[in-house]
Design a protein around this nucleic acid. Structure first.
Length: 389
DNA sequence: AACATTTGCAACCGCACAACT
DNA sequence: CAGTTGTGCGGTTGCAAATGT
């Protein structure tokens, strides 16, 4: 579908906008609204393409834009959301009122990215660059990996949630369905499949009972949520389908509890094998007022069991709330003080648990746990109706 | 003071996708 | 159903200002 770029027309101005042009655009939009951007330049008497006008308006002239220095709170939000969402600037911008995606993107690229890099943290993965080295040294690699996967889980959850919103709009005839689902007691969810392949991997499939009246409008496939778990790689993938049914399971926190720490595979646990289990906590959909939790555990035989437990969720929430001063704050506090650390030791900045000087692997893992918890906490506290996607 | 380099940011570019014809 | 248009998005560029030598 060949289409010439909108700014190819000769005679159209490019480059920085003059105050006069700004005034023209502002005046026109205030009086008529922008309407069709393509038609706007002619009507407004501007020698610009519509796209350029739209950009100027959305990124600069719009009255509801806050400009100037980012606050610490805003920086923290950007870092946390970037860890979770990556370069999805528009999604991040929805959590920062009055900031444009372009501004956030620029701020990230010029300030925050460099700051993370200075501290030896990969701005893409939000993990220390010497992660592997440290992990092999202290044997907590999977702990860190788990935390990273928590973010992946959360990201998947957000997408599922967004899909839910979209689908709920599309399926107007199902308007009552969501209400039924969200008011359903999570106790009614049952584990329908706990297949294990080998001793260290398992697949969870969760389904609400067919007796649930809400299932009348859901096809069988969509009424399940599948969780692939492989303890060798400590890899958790949300393979849930993009439907109302899958979205109902909202993994908010995954906690792996090993026999002596959390890094061991089932085999490595040896005679403590019976203690090897993984707790997978889910809170119900954000629309549900009551945060109930389902805890899923794998027993020594590899079979999964479930139990509802408010406490698990509460503990998780409390922990996250109490740890708002995780690595993110460390980053913010250290914004320009990296130089105070010994030369050539930047790679260990984040390992020292906020300058305590201990630098132990435990602190390191604690920091990262706090880091991701604060991210999840941030997102969990976000308005569920936020147009993230 | 002059020049070089770095930084910060506005704006552009091209792609993707949905809506429309 | 294919083509067109409008819009949103993320990556990149260009340039002025700031900083360093």
């Amino acid at each position: 579908m060949g289409r010439s770029p909108c700014c190819d027309k000769v005679g159209l101005k490019k480059g920085p906008w003059t105050p006069e042009e700004d005034q023209k655009l502002l005046a026109y939009i205030e009086e008529h609204g922008h309407g069709s951007w393509r038609a706007l330049p002619t009507k407004a008497g501007l020698q610009r393409c519509g796209k350029s006008c739209r950009l100027r308006w959305t990124n600069y002239l719009r009255p509801d834009i806050k400009r100037g220095k980012f606050s610490l709170q805003e920086e923290q939000t950007i870092i946390q959301l970037h860890a979770l969402l990556g370069n999805r600037w528009s999604a991040i911008a929805t959590h920062l009122p009055k900031r444009t995606d372009n501004e956030i993107k620029n701020y990230w690229n010029t300030h925050l990215k460099k700051r993370l890099a200075k501290m030896g943290i990969d701005p893409v993965t939000h993990k220390p660059k010497n992660d592997a080295l440290l992990s092999s040294a202290d044997g907590h690699s999977k702990n860190v990996s788990n935390l990273s996967h928590m973010a992946q889980w959360e990201s998947a959850r957000l997408e599922a949630e967004a899909r839910l919103v979209r689908e709920s709009k599309l399926r107007s005839h199902n308007s009552s369905l969501l209400h039924q689902l969200t008011t359903t007691n999570p106790n009614t969810y049952v584990l329908v499949n706990s297949s294990s392949s080998g001793s260290t991997s398992a697949q969870l499939q969760i389904q609400w009972p067919s007796s649930n009246p809400s299932n009348n409008n859901i096809d069988l496939e969509s009424s399940t949520s599948t969780l692939n778990y492989n303890s060798d790689q400590t890899n958790v993938n949300n393979a849930s389908s993009s439907t109302v049914g899958s979205a109902i399971m909202q993994p908010a926190m995954i906690e792996f509890v090993g026999c002596s720490g959390s890094s061991e595979t089932k085999e490595e646990c040896g005679d403590k094998e019976e203690d090897w289990k993984s707790h997978l906590s889910f809170t119900s959909l954000g629309l549900v007022h009551d945060h109930q939790t389902i805890t899923m555990s794998m027993d020594a035989g590899g079979a999964w069991t479930t139990a509802t437990d408010h406490q698990v969720g509460n503990v998780v929430a409390d922990m996250a709330a109490a740890d708002q001063e995780g690595i993110t704050n460390l980053l913010l506090n250290n914004s320009d003080e990296v130089h105070s650390l010994p030369d050539g030791d930047h790679g260990r900045d984040s390992d020292n648990g906020g300058g305590s000087g201990s630098g132990s692997g435990t602190d390191y893992n604690e920091d990262h746990k706090h880091y991701w918890n604060s991210i999840l906490n941030l997102v969990n506290s976000s308005p569920s109706e936020s147009p993230l996607f």
